[in-house]
Design a protein around this nucleic acid. Structure first.
Lengths: 132, 132
DNA sequence: GGAAGTTACATGCGCGTGCATTTAATGTCA
DNA sequence: TGACATTAAATGCACGCGCATGTAACTTCC
């Protein structure tokens, strides 16, 4: 395509850097606004959203899979949410190793309150992508 | 375009989730491989790359601007690189508040050794984007 | 049923991050 | 020149992360 002679396509590196910059910008903005206005972080919000999308409850395992987090990070995330009263942790009936995470009313309200903020920040910060 | 009636375009949220997932996947892979095979992390590599692209040296300030990191994180990053002997920190001549970061020979070699690894991981993990 | 392996989740640990603050050097203005 | 604002970088602090490991509950196979 272009006539650069790096060892690999420069567009790949460009894309990578754009990914890094974009992620930092968008995530940083979302994190900041959510934290400032609703006292939750990006991952907390994402977890709540997954719970709302499901039947307000799901296995911790599903949450771990749905989020870009390690198992330990997900575990602590749920613990934080529980500490804030946004979810409850109960032993799973079918598999007592498992934890059933359930959205509380406070959790639902917090999510609903935070959603417009998150959507607004996304709309404001994700646009510049088109000019890539 | 599609006829979903969420409070915002669902494509925006989809794009956001793809950004999160993609960043986690690619960055995680690059981080792991670079750490495993060359003893440096993603940010360390990016910093070295900026130094190589420049004249093997630049103000710490420029590095901070070039990387998706806070000022304090960039400062510590340079400190780590120095501890590993990959860069040197000298007081800037023109502005003695500033720090001039200079790539060492070891730093250049480490970068050159790590670059193929990074490029390979990028090539392997960034492709799935096209199917967005 | 019982031993061995596997899976789900929690936790100790070290580390990198951002925020707020500090320290030192520059710029500004009189 | 001297006082005040500004800027560059370093650092104390709290916190979230991943890795490795621990614990408890399943599963398998005999």
């Amino acid at each position: 395509m272009s006539d650069i002679d790096t060892d690999t396509e420069p567009s790949l590196v460009d894309e990578w850097r754009r990914l890094l910059a974009r992620h930092a910008a968008v995530t940083g903005a979302v994190e900041h606004e959510l934290q400032q206005r609703h006292g939750i972080g990006v991952n907390e919000f994402e977890a709540l959203e997954r719970l709302v999308e499901g039947a307000d409850g799901c296995r911790a395992l599903e949450l771990t899979d749905a989020l870009p987090l390690s198992q330990s990070a997900a575990s602590r995330l749920v613990a934080r949410l529980e500490r804030q009263g946004l979810v409850t942790r109960t032993v799973c009936v079918n598999d007592r190793r498992g934890v059933f995470v359930c959205l509380t009313e406070a959790g639902r309200e917090r999510y609903l309150a935070a959603r417009p903020t998150q959507r607004a920040v996304l709309a404001a910060t994700m646009r510049p992508e088109s000019s890539g």
